[in-house]
Design a protein around this nucleic acid. Sequence first.
DNA 1: CGAAGCGTTGAGTGCTTTCAATAGTTGTGG
DNA 2: CCACAACTATTGAAAGCACTCAACGCTTCG
Lengths: 257, 257
Amino acid sequence: MDNNTVIDLPSIRTGCKTCSLSRLCFPDSETGQEKETTDNPVTRSHKFERGEYIFRVNEPFKTVYAIRTGSVKTYSSLENGKEQVTGFHLPGELLGLDSISTNYHAESAIALESCNICEIAFARLESLSNENPAIQHALLNAMSEEIQHDHQQITLLSRLPAEARLASFLISASSHFHERGFSATDFHLSMTRSDIANLLGLAVETISRLFSLFQEKGLLAVERRHVVLFDIDGLKQLTPDYCRHSRHAYMNQNKAS
Amino acid sequence: MDNNTVIDLPSIRTGCKTCSLSRLCFPDSETGQEKETTDNPVTRSHKFERGEYIFRVNEPFKTVYAIRTGSVKTYSSLENGKEQVTGFHLPGELLGLDSISTNYHAESAIALESCNICEIAFARLESLSNENPAIQHALLNAMSEEIQHDHQQITLLSRLPAEARLASFLISASSHFHERGFSATDFHLSMTRSDIANLLGLAVETISRLFSLFQEKGLLAVERRHVVLFDIDGLKQLTPDYCRHSRHAYMNQNKAS
DNA sequence: CGAAGCGTTGAGTGCTTTCAATAGTTGTGG
DNA sequence: CCACAACTATTGAAAGCACTCAACGCTTCG
């Protein structure tokens, strides 16, 4: 609708810089950040406001989405009407790849704030992947990262006590923001306590209590969605057996064999 | 080493039938089950005994493995020396795809019993995928399924009480065996109670207690690794808000667009 | 201004864990 | 072939962590 109107260029550059499919929009660049082709024959950018759905569960899967700016929550719906949050997503991430095998979306994606999101027809992406080994590898790479991330989430849910889960979540958020050029110690959470609790497999009240506890310990200051980390090492010490906090630690190793 | 010696043809046929990459070995077949090419220029079959590693964490990732017969446990190692089981794998499944993004194995895979396992060089698989859209789609499909399965595992760990977790595990095992031509109600678990507990995020003792409880309820009979299900519907009623029990419910929808 | 949603804090309950003891099973070496 | 060790599995008792229930302020928005 109202795409290609006012665009926040610096933010977009950050989003495209970390985008798994930057080769699509910047085919000449090795790192995908030199040119500023805001409109592209392959991808179309679209704006979503807070609360708008990018896609819903059970809709036909035809399009892959890449976040350019903003943040997104993905979740699957359970039979009893409740939902299970599977992740929060930041600029550069791809949405919808889990639905390839069924042709229908396995989860819903909803904007947590104003977002610019690129849309790529999956059929087009598949044929482009066939023509271009680098794009194929980038696609496999993105899915591989998602699997690794999910395995870390499984470990978190299976092994860590509540304290370690929230600490791990905050460290992860911190490094994700840092990777995108924002402050690693002072940031705004775009999701509710309820969403965090859902992702971490805890009750809302537990999240509240832990935030208060962390504040008492002097690890951080928090006021509603605004978080300031004072002692990241202290937080890390709360996650003794959970090593890899950054899911993008090995990104962009696209050597084609 | 001792591959291509004595091969259990019926079992192999089952494994290849459900293999995500059956097109590699049976390129002419739509369903991948007519010919019996036991040795193939693309894949090499290899035998692993119980306790042997197919690969270990941090080893260079160069090969994708397809289970032809037997069962495999995958797990990641934590800093404190403990391990997190991420899954049990049966014939037809692919191992190692989560390691594409780092070029090093993110987890270890160990044979739970005697296994015949096919090895495909990933570089070769990538170039074959580029030449053949159907193979590329099969590869994306397999990874998509893995992500969906992981999301179900996350839901299980995040939301379900112990009773529902074990019930869900048994139902899943049952349908997996059934899909491969074995009994859905009478089967042998190749993993220890400890492995099950680890996968489900519970203590070993809890698994034992639940097996005893299920027996008292008349839902099943269990003697060490041998399980006989009497009341699958009864088990399903223990998992009220956890719908999809089969990860292969939508397999083989390989329409290329 | 009132309603709805979000967030915090307290008290009590309960599910699962940990600790502990026992028995069955497997594998190995004398 | 038996004995011993290591692993696997079961069951009981007690403790603890996180949940549910409940009440209350704060913010947002119509």
